[in-house]
Computed example of a mutant assay.
Amino acid sequence: MAMTYPPFVFTQEQVEWLERRGWGYRVLMDFLSRPPRMSLIAHWRYKAELIGVIPASRGGRKLIGYLKSIPEQQFRQVCSREAAEYERLFTGRDAVMTSCESLFRRRTEGADAFACISEVRKIYMENGVVFNKLNGERDDHIALELEFMAVLAEGMLSKSSLPHTCLTLADAQIGFLESHLLKWARPFASELMLASTSPLYTGLAELLDEFLDHDLRQLRRWRDTQAPA
């Protein structure tokens, strides 16, 4: 007998979370995927004016405060400095940070790097997500894993009237957070906080640490209340 799904019931908190969570993944993905040129910083400085677009956690407030505080007359200089910091942290053989899950977890826990990246690719394929990788990014780069979550979060929001599809997307996100992203994103955030003094990157690190854990709790809580009848 086919399962039936009752209409979704959302609390006001859940409605706000469902509408805004994609933005949390997007801001993290944007700043961790490429050097923050003037257009990117200007984009998110504008978004910071929109209440709730950037999660208002401790790290989120730090990031918002920093973006808003950049003086207009120093905007170009600050953007150049933050782009140079991105290069130092994430680019080239001498990069301070390891930005790919398989390599990070091989270093920190002795994980099988090939098996790790193969599983990530399989999950993307199973969920019909294909990335347009312009710079040869690895599938398990922190930014692509965050973008995968953003895509599914936005899909879940747009499919909220289709219970089975929405629940399937929720399960995929819970599984990916538990088996991949949260296995290394929080240690990655801790290393980033130690590696940089930039309020941009320390704010992003704190936001990464706080947001993923909160989002998983919210997903689980919502999923537990939506079990099929």
Rank of each mutant, 00 (worst) to 15 (best):
G92C: 09
A56H: 11
G65K: 02
P36M: 10
S80M: 11
Y86V: 07
I70E: 04
R81F: 05
Q77Y: 03
G52C: 12
R81E: 15
L50Y: 08
G52K: 12
F90R: 04
M97I: 08
F75I: 05
A83I: 00
P71M: 03
P55L: 01
D30Q: 14
R81T: 14
G59K: 01
A42V: 05
G52Y: 08
G60Y: 01
R45S: 14
Y46E: 15
G92A: 04
V53G: 00
S39V: 14
R81L: 12
S80H: 10
I54E: 06
I54G: 05
V53I: 14
I70T: 04
L32H: 11
V96F: 03
S80E: 14
A83L: 04
D30S: 15
G59F: 02
G59S: 03
S57P: 00
M97R: 08
E49I: 00
K62H: 08
D30H: 11
E72F: 03
R81C: 06
S33L: 13
V53S: 13
L40H: 07
Q74P: 00
Q73K: 12
K47T: 05
H43Q: 15
A83H: 00
G52M: 10
V96K: 12
L50E: 15
W44M: 07
F90Q: 04
R34F: 12
Y86D: 04
R88K: 12
R81N: 11
T91W: 10
V78E: 12
M29D: 11
R61I: 02
Y46W: 12
K47N: 10
C79L: 02
S33G: 13
M29W: 14
P35I: 08
I51H: 13
P36F: 04
L32S: 12
I64R: 10
L89T: 08
L50S: 11
F90N: 06
K62W: 01
I70M: 06
S39T: 14
R37E: 15
I70W: 07
A83K: 08
R93Y: 12
M97W: 07
K68S: 06
G92N: 06
S69N: 02
Y46R: 15
I41C: 09
Y46G: 10
G60P: 02
P71G: 06
A95H: 06
E49W: 04
F31T: 11
S57Q: 03
Q77C: 00
S69V: 03
E87I: 12
E72V: 05
L67F: 05
E72K: 11
Q73V: 12
I70S: 07
